[in-house]
Design a protein around this nucleic acid. Structure first.
Lengths: 163, 163
DNA sequence: GTGTAACGGTTAACAAGGTTAACAATACCC
DNA sequence: GGGTATTGTTAACCTTGTTAACCGTTACAC
């Protein structure tokens, strides 16, 4: 029999250089794979009808900065104004915020969190922190702080404009 | 004038606690923001008709493991088999690989990189490494190695199954 | 041997997250 | 006042991915 008659076309999983596996040494690839895992666990933690990551992030800004503008919020989230509309609709639909008129400028509708929204955010942030503590339990507090610092070091130069 | 008559509904950018900004202290949020930046720079580096990150990743596996199966590749990339079809179509369309019949199993089509594909990958990985070196120039080699190690620490528990 | 289960690749329909382009209303500038 | 810029919004679209169904093929129980 020719050497090609193995059962499967050699998955060949183990005998690679392993020191210089190009893809596995790229930050970008590892960043994405890690984010996919964290996002999946976040969603599972928040449950079926829980807030998606982006909706949660938006609510966080609104609670921290009541009466923030949609344009301003979009800028801080790093997305387009148009993309924010659905997110604000979601939050408004949950009763977590209201679009309120602003006396000085009739174009603008300020985003003001409701009492329910503030409470929902308090609970969600607690859940999110618990989810990360659980998911990253293999890492020490120092390691988590380092990871945070390194991720911010990537962000800062790239977000210099959008504050 | 009532206190509401400021020009804008207070963007309120500076005077926040800053030590305990909930969202900014979450790994997941920073992971996503960092990945968006890295992905954007990767795309810009690869140019208009360059490979997308996922296509590049797939080619990397195929070059490293010639005759890998589509199912096996999907498992290693962490996506569904169905989602891989378009990626392989893309690579085949570029002439970077061929779906080849496997003697022992007529269900399977092994993915074999072409000479052009191997060369294109060599160039792409060099571009990718240059892009990361440029983008992450504020970090020391030690810091990059740490970041890589920490991201892998997130991945490993979550990918225990899919090898 | 044969019936049944499992597997590999594919397609179709859909969902999430985002973008660009246009628009109406409003505000700003001189 | 007239031209220009900004705000929120919609519509159309792209990307990346999923689930569900299908067909051909292989593995396996008995």
């Amino acid at each position: 029999m020719p050497p090609q008659s193995r059962k499967k076309p050699q998955p060949q999983g183990d005998e690679l250089p392993m020191a210089e596996r190009g893809l596995e040494n790229l930050i970008g690839y590892n960043l994405k794979r890690a984010y996919v895992i964290v996002r999946g666990d976040f969603r599972a933690t928040m449950g079926e009808d829980g807030m998606s990551p982006r909706v949660f992030s938006a609510l966080s800004f609104v609670v921290d900065m009541p009466d923030i503008t949609q344009s301003e919020l979009a800028r801080r989230l790093g997305i387009e104004r148009s993309g924010l509309v659905a997110i604000v609709d979601d939050l408004e639909g949950r009763g977590y915020l209201r679009r309120t008129a602003v006396p000085g400028d009739r174009r603008v509708q300020a985003l003001r969190p409701t009492q329910v929204g503030v409470e929902a955010f308090a609970e969600a942030i607690a859940q999110a922190e618990a989810h990360e503590a659980r998911l990253l339990q293999v890492m020490s507090e120092d390691e988590k702080a380092q990871l945070l610092a390194l991720l911010r070091a990537i962000r800062e130069p790239g977000e210099a404009d959008a504050i």
